[in-house]
Amino acid sequence: MNIFWQELRFYRKSLLIWVLALSTTLIVFLSSYQSISSQIDVFREVVSHYPKALLLVINFRFEIFYTIYGYFGYILTFIWLAGAIQAMNYGVSILSKEVTDKTADFLLSKPVSRSRILTEKFAAGLSLIVITNICFTVTALLGAKYFSHSNFGIKTFIMLSATLFFVQVFFLVLGFLFGTILPKIKTVLSVALPTVFIFFIVASFGGILDKPDFYYLTPFKYFDPVYIYQNSGYDPKYLFALGGFVVTSLVLSYIVYIRKDIKL
């Protein structure tokens, strides 16, 4: 377990910074809730005059938007974006740094198997994500309580907040896969940032273009706050997609890493 603890120690500072960043972003967005929700009456008035057919186009997700769930769900899109960068960063760097920092021959000459290295590193990355999410959910609950001046269902709220975890796991695993496959990654962020944004933009396009098939391509569409609110649960087909991706990537990572020549 020494590799595991070493990695946790190494990412301590980064974890702190990210937790603060995510919490700050959340609080900043949440603090605008009042000024936005005050407009719900205006909205209801306007919409009441719309023909039924049109209302179908809009659908009632807008009504939800004005609740704390809906607003939180909206904010989550951006939290996911930031969290994805964090997770992908971890996934890529936790492996690639052995090559960039030239510590590969140190580690690999030790009496450890490559699979143990992978397992402990992945476990460390996962732990960082878990810790981040616990802190985030707590902040979210406190923030929502403070800014919404009303009651809300904690369970549903936590379910919403937990979506961050799933999105982060996706990118952690993806980053991990990149770390095993790509020989040398000099600037982790130059790989992580564009990749995350590509998934983000595909999600936005998919939303605009209204093409549900696209949704499988990007974790940013796996979790619809409205769906979660309505069903108090996650959409199983996307959970399967996520699970499938995670398992496949991890297996692939192991296979590649155990066999490949490490660039020294």
Binding site: Q39, V42, V46, Y50, I58, F65, Y74, S204
Partner: peptide
């Protein structure tokens, strides 16, 4: 949808955040 002029009506009368959601 343009023909029915409803899209324009919507676009003009939606409260800001809703427009923002769709960019």
């Amino acid at each position: 949808a343009q023909g029915s002029s409803s899209i324009n009506v919507i676009a003009n009368s939606f409260p800001k955040p809703l427009l923002a959601i769709f960019g």
